[in-house]
């Protein structure tokens, strides 16, 4: 996705959905969930290609993303509150229309629905 390689801390994002038939490092329980970028962790070869002995180039930016447990689990949540942090590659992230974590609203004011 264009622009995703420069997500700043505090930017609200949504993890893409989908069931690619490949090795991938985006857990199912976070797909479609909204979170907030904590920081960029650097660029790494795409694991979805590395798994098939391809070079995985160009490297992709890996982001540390924080999720609110209530956003992740919804009705299933039976303890909390707490947060989940996971590392998600840029091509799995898209801009979110609203922040999912209270207190992390920086950068979200212009696209709040």
């Amino acid at each position: 996705m264009s622009g995703a390689s420069s997500l700043a801390a505090g930017v609200p994002v949504r993890v893409r959905t989908g069931e690619p038939q490949t090795h991938c490092r985006t857990p199912h329980y976070l797909r479609g969930k909204r979170g907030v970028v904590l920081r960029a962790l650097g660029r790494y070869p795409n694991p979805e290609e590395l798994a098939y002995h391809k070079p995985g180039m160009p490297p992709l930016t890996l982001y540390q993303v924080e999720f609110d447990a209530a956003e992740v689990w919804g009705e299933r949540l039976h303890e909390g509150p707490y947060r989940i942090v996971a590392d998600i590659f840029e091509h799995w992230l898209e801009p979110s229309v609203q922040p999912a974590v209270p207190g992390h609203e920086q950068g979200a004011s212009h696209d709040r629905a």
Binding site: L41, Q64, Y82, R83, D87, I88
Partner: peptide, 26 residues
Amino acid sequence: RSVLKEFGTELPAQREIRVVDSTADM
């Protein structure tokens, strides 16, 4: 919190928990 309790770890209710899922290269 339930899992931590099974490890004998009871945290004060006001202490925030962050579960860090090592999903990729870090």
